[in-house]
Computed example of a mutant assay.
Amino acid sequence: MKTLTLLRHAKSGWDDPVTRDFDRPLNAKGKRAAQTVGRNLRDLGLEFDHIVASPAIRVGETLDAVVAGYGRKLAPVWERRIYLASAATLLDVVHELPADADRVLLVGHNPGLEDLVLMLVPEAADGLRTLVEEKYPTATMAEMTLAITGWDDAAAGRATLTRYIRPRDLDATLGPDED
């Protein structure tokens, strides 16, 4: 059994005068949301064998704020392919995850993360997948379990969505988002 947790970066600032999208930092609400998510990861007792993340500035700042709430160091492998990746590219990254990693955190961007969840989790009449179909807000976590022995076996329809936690689920002042 493998567990894949996806975390979308927290809310970034569009008012910042950076010239590249890659360099956009988090805004104050995003930092607060990411720290809240970190506290929730701690409260749930979640630990990760491996972390892989987009090298975009807003992802790094999200992880810094998550660590502030989580209280544990996170040491991601920075993977350029995750930056604004499609679900197919993200699945390629998943296929290459270390065989001995059973609990992985992947931190990146939408729409790729949302599309990856919708690809891996089969359609159902109700449940958490319906929430993902509606919206995958910033700083939202989706946890999936896969009944596989190796990451290269991850495929469409093979995952079960076990958690879908939005910042507003943890603190009503953190939502709703307009992104």
Score class of each variant (00 low, 15 high):
R58F: 07
R58D: 08
V59Q: 07
G60R: 15
G60S: 11
G60P: 00
E61R: 13
E61Q: 15
L63Y: 14
L63Q: 15
L63H: 13
D64K: 14
D64L: 11
D64W: 00
D64C: 01
A65G: 01
A65T: 02
A65I: 03
A65Q: 08
A65M: 04
V67K: 07
A68P: 10
A68V: 06
G69A: 09
G69Y: 13
G69K: 08
Y70N: 06
G71R: 01
G71W: 01
R72K: 15
K73L: 14
K73W: 12
K73S: 14
K73P: 09
L74D: 10
L74T: 09
L74Q: 08
L74F: 11
L74W: 12
A75P: 04
A75V: 13
P76M: 06
P76A: 01
V77D: 13
W78R: 07
E79I: 01
E79P: 03
R80I: 12
R80H: 13
R81T: 10
R81E: 12
R81Y: 04
R81M: 05
R81A: 14
I82M: 02
I82W: 00
I82H: 07
I82D: 08
Y83H: 07
Y83I: 02
A85C: 04
A85R: 07
S86P: 10
S86F: 12
A87L: 09
A87D: 11
A87P: 10
A87W: 13
A88Y: 07
T89Q: 15
L90R: 07
L90W: 08
L90A: 12
L91K: 14
L91I: 07
L91T: 11
D92F: 02
D92Q: 15
D92M: 05
D92L: 04
D92H: 07
V93H: 00
V93D: 05
V94C: 05
V94Q: 09
H95D: 04
E96K: 10
E96D: 14
E96I: 02
E96T: 00
L97V: 04
L97R: 03
L97D: 08
L97C: 06
P98S: 06
P98W: 05
A99K: 02
A99N: 08
A99I: 09
A99E: 13
A99S: 10
D100C: 03
A101P: 04
A101W: 09
D102V: 00
D102L: 03
D102C: 07
D102K: 13
D102F: 09
D102M: 03
R103M: 00
V104I: 04
V104Y: 05
L105S: 01
L106P: 02
L106N: 03
G108M: 05
